[in-house]
């Protein structure tokens, strides 16, 4: 039985406390009175988790200067962009912004999978991480584009969409199988990534703009699951807990939102009919 030294023990206990705060924070969102407190608790816990991880990084002494520079500039740029967008956006434009943040979250999870693949080769968590992360990245961008009016809000139906879906599913299955069998290498990962990115587009494009909030919630749950898979790949417990928490609560929330709109989730995802968008006269 391996035991951790004091430093590792403290870090892992901090991660446990952080995970508890995420659960409590989400639970406090059940009531308008406590919701803001819940979000602040969650944000505080997030700050602690990032700080603790930074301490681990600083203590490791193996991190190359180039990696530090890339990490620092990337984080600062991303944080500044996120802060600016979140502050400036109009209240009515918030759902598409959430979708954009969800897209980059999924993208980050997929890239962690790519990094892990480059270092240690393929594993089931890596394959799932790249697959789900890439689907949610492109899917959330399409959802945000529809709400922002950059893409038409009406359902976009491709000719031969069934055939495209079949080809994509085959490409995903074949590349995943090759990766898990230890063959294929980088080209197989590229096929998986590209097929997943296209799947994200073909999944969301046929769904009408009025159903987008429900779809964004579903993609949010996807990202949570991708982050949990990244946690498996990295052996990081707090990523697994937080990711699974969002994956499950996001799924329930998706169901609640669909119920509140009186729209069965299945017909939303089938897309292309029965939406408010379609009822409008053409032209």
């Amino acid at each position: 039985m391996t035991t951790f030294d004091t430093f590792d023990t403290v870090i892992r206990l901090v991660y446990l406390a952080v995970a508890c705060c995420f659960v409590l924070g989400l639970h406090l969102m059940n009531s308008p009175v406590t919701a803001r407190r819940g979000n602040l608790l969650s944000a505080g816990a997030m700050t602690v988790a990032i700080a603790a991880t930074a301490v681990v990084l600083a203590g490791a002494e193996t991190v190359r200067p180039g990696a530090w520079a890339a990490l620092a500039t990337g984080s600062l740029l991303g944080a500044a962009a996120g802060l600016l967008l979140a502050r400036r956006v109009r209240m009515t434009a918030m759902p598409q912004l959430v979708s954009l943040f969800n897209a980059v979250g999924g993208g980050a999870a997929a890239l962690i999978g790519v990094h892990d693949f480059a270092g240690r080769g393929a594993s089931l968590p890596v394959v799932l991480d790249v697959l789900i992360g890439a689907v949610t990245f492109s899917g959330s961008l399409v959802a945000a584009g529809k709400l922002q009016g950059l893409l038409p809000g009406r359902p976009i139906i491709f000719p031969g969409s069934r055939l495209i879906a079949t080809v994509l599913a085959l490409a995903v299955a074949a590349s995943s199988a090759a990766l898990l069998a230890g063959r294929g290498g980088a080209p197989a990962l590229a096929v998986l990534g590209v097929a997943a990115l296209i799947s994200g587009v073909t999944l969301v494009a046929p769904i009408g703009g009025a159903d987008m909030p429900v779809v964004i919630s579903l993609l949010n749950a996807f990202t949570g699951t991708a982050v949990a898979m990244a946690g498996f790949a990295l052996g990081n417990g707090v990523l697994i807990t937080a990711g699974a928490l969002v994956g499950a609560s996001g799924t329930i929330l998706t169901k609640l939102m669909a119920d509140a709109m009186n729209r069965p989730l299945r017909s939303i995802l089938a897309g292309g009919f029965g939406t408010g968008d379609e009822a409008k006269p053409a032209g």
């Binding site: 924070g25 989400l26 969102m29 059940n30 009531s31 308008p32 919701a35 819940g38 979000n39 969650s42 944000a43 997030m46 988790a49 990032i50 991880t53 930074a54 681990v56 990084l57 490791a60 193996t62 991190v63 990696a67 530090w68 990490l71 990337g74 918030m94 759902p95 959430v98 943040f101 969800n102 979250g105 980050a108 999870a109 962690i112 990094h115 892990d116 270092g119 909030p213 964004i216 919630s217 949010n220 749950a221 990202t223 949570g224 982050v227 990244a230 946690g231 990295l234 990081n236 707090v238 990523l239 937080a242 990711g243 969002v246 609560s249 996001g250 929330l253 609640l256 939102m257 509140a260």
Partner: peptide, 26 residues
């Protein structure tokens, strides 16, 4: 509270930043 909750859950999976830090290790 559906939309704020969706946004809050979206922020929680931002923990992926800890993963970004972890890949900088290697």
């Amino acid at each position: 509270l559906h939309t704020p909750l969706m946004s809050a859950a979206n922020a929680v999976h931002g923990i992926v930043l800890a993963g970004a830090l972890a890949i900088a290790l290697t």
